[in-house]
Structure formats: C-alpha cells, structure tokens
C-alpha cells in the first residue's frame, strides 16, 4: 500500500472569473504521515483537496496520490483514497447501516462482506444503536462520524479530510480527533487534513503547511514552526483615537531583535525574552505618553505563527 502524496508545481485558475486559487504549489506527504494544511477561508485548501481527490482538474502541474496520477488515473486513485469533504455526503433517507452497506458494495464488497464491514464500522464510530435510524434524524456529530466511517469502508491508504470538525461541539471534535489518531497510528493510514483550527493542526499533525492566498507560506513540524517566531508574544491594544502608526514606528525603532506587526486593532511584538522586553515596551509607551487599553504577554501558539506569517496586508485568519 503506497500512501504517498507528491504534488509538483500545481496551479489552478478558475475559468469563471479567472481567479487563481492555487499558485505553483509543491509538497510531499510521506506514507503514514499525518499532514495538515492550515489556512483561512478562501486560501485554496479545498481546491487542492478537490484536485487530489479527482473531483477537479488542475490547470498545470502534477499530483500523485497512492502512486497514481490524479489526472491520468482517477479511477485508480479513487480506489485507494477516502475523502470526507466539508459538507457531509450522506443520503438523509437511508439508515446509517444502509448507507455504509451501499458504500461497501460500490467498492466491490460482496453482499455478506459489505454487511459485516458496515457492522464493524458502525461499532468503530459508535453508531450501532442508531444504525437502523434514518440519517435525516442524526445530529451533526453523528452525521460527521458516519461520514468518516464511509471514507474508511475500503481501508484507504490515504485519507483526505477537508475541515472535518467544522461545526462540531468540543466533545464530538475530540471523538473525531481520537479516531483519526487511532487510524494514523494503528493502521498507518496517511492523513491529509485541512483545517482553520490551529489547535487542531497542532494537536494532530506530524507536519503542517500554512497556505494563504493559494501559496504555501511556511512548512514544518509544529515545533519547528513555533521556533521560527521566537519564544514570546507581546500583544497590545492602543486606545481608540490613538496614533497607531506612530506607536508602531516607535516600537519598531525602540526594540532590538523584535518583530513588530499590526494586526487589526492590535500591535503584535514577537520577542526572544518576553518578560525583559515587556518592561522595555512599557518604558517606551510611558516615555512617549502613549496610552494602551490592554497589554499581554504570552507564549506563541500556531495562531501567532499563522498571523505572523500571513502578516500585515494579507488575508487575515479572522476574516
């Protein structure tokens, strides 16, 4: 079973509107790796997933999934992948069991094998009790779990999950995470996950690529990415009506070895020694009579990395 994903100079421009959603993206995911694509809405994550799962053609570049070319051998790719898209793809008029059996039979299971596989998966995603209920009566969390089970019917080498926990409550999100970890560790399934939740990527992925505006802007392990921005973050909120440009300028020129950026109403300062630099920031603000509403010191999260990398003038995470 080859669970590799190899993407080389992939681009996608939509004919309608001429929007270039993916710009010369290259990356590799090793067999058995848990890889996350992190980015805001409209960054190009779903477009890449759609290309890799054979739902869409690329404008240029190549992509191989499980050893097959997604453009030239889409049928072979489909036999080796499982994919859960942003919207759960289930028929509300079928029961959970019927839906899983149908999926198994489509993938070539015999009648009896399909039934057994459905039973097994219902147990794994804890839907045995709801198996005979129509999916239309399932909660959002139950549908998501069923959707995940559907992707696993044929034990795919590569699993694509496009924002699998969006809209789920914390307990359901944790249940999905647990299942994904189990699949990756116990079965060796290669997992390609897209998410807007930095916490999700941080918790699950071996390696992360941050994508913004159709381009990969950073890649590495969560640890490497955190290391890239220094150890601490000082976030301050100037008072309304204050001269933010002047504050930004003074902090940039007054602080040594600090990276100062503006992010919406906040000014973010990435520094090596947060406590010492916090005093220096306070001194500058006091000396220049600059009032602030709030000032906080924290260790960086992937969120901070994301904001720093996508930076000023680029699409913001919150947007």
């Amino acid at each position: 079973m080859n669970g590799k994903i190899v993407v080389d100079h992939l681009s996608k421009t939509f004919k309608k509107g001429g929007v270039q959603a993916v710009k010369d993206v290259s990356f590799k995911v090793e067999e058995g790796e848990f890889f996350a694509f992190l980015g805001p809405n409209g960054a190009g994550k779903s477009t890449i997933v759609q290309i890799l799962t054979t739902l869409m053609n690329a404008t240029s570049g190549t992509a191989f999934v499980a050893g097959f070319d997604v453009i030239k051998e889409p049928e072979k790719v489909r036999r080796h992948i499982g994919a859960a898209l942003q919207e759960t793809g289930v028929d509300p008029d079928l029961t959970g069991r019927e839906m899983l059996e149908l999926q198994a039979w489509i993938f070539g299971f015999g009648k009896r094998e399909g039934r057994l596989r459905a039973e097994e998966l219902l147990d794994i995603v804890q839907l045995t009790e709801a198996a005979e209920r129509r999916i239309g009566r399932y909660s959002g969390g139950m549908r998501r779990r069923l959707d995940l089970a559907l992707t696993l019917v044929h034990e795919p080498a590569v699993l694509f999950l496009d924002e699998p926990t969006t809209g789920l409550d914390p307990s359901n999100r944790m249940a999905v995470w647990e299942e994904l970890r189990r699949l990756n560790k116990d079965k060796g399934t290669t997992i390609f996950l897209t998410t807007q939740y930095l916490e999700e990527a941080d918790n699950l992925a071996d390696r992360i690529s941050i994508i913004n505006d159709g381009e990969i802007v950073a890649s590495g392990t969560p640890k490497e990415l955190k290391a890239r921005i220094g150890s601490d973050l000082i976030a301050l909120t100037p008072v309304d009506g204050g001269d933010e440009d002047r504050t930004l300028h003074l902090l940039k020129s007054g602080l040594m070895d600090a990276d100062v950026i503006r992010k919406q109403e906040k000014i973010l300062i990435y520094v090596e020694e947060g406590t010492r630099q916090l005093l220096e920031v306070a001194r500058i603000l006091d000396r220049e009579n600059i009032e602030v509403e709030d000032i906080q010191l924290s260790s960086p999260t992937l969120d901070d990395i994301f904001l720093k990398i996508t930076g000023e003038g680029k699409r913001s995470y919150e947007q």
């Binding site: 799962t53 054979t54 739902l55 049928e75 489909r78 036999r79 992948i81 994919a83 898209l85 919207e87 759960t88 793809g89 289930v90 028929d91 509300p92 999926q103 489509i106 993938f107 070539g108 559907l150």
Partner: peptide, 16 residues
C-alpha cells in the same frame, strides 16, 4: 436532492 445534500459528490469520490 443528491447534489444539495452532498451525496452526489460522495458518489463521485467512489469508483462507481
């Protein structure tokens, strides 16, 4: 109905 509830896409992801 299948297109709206995502089932059509689910089918396109299979070898059907």
């Amino acid at each position: 109905k299948d297109i709206e509830n995502g089932f059509f896409s689910r089918l396109l992801l299979t070898p059907a």
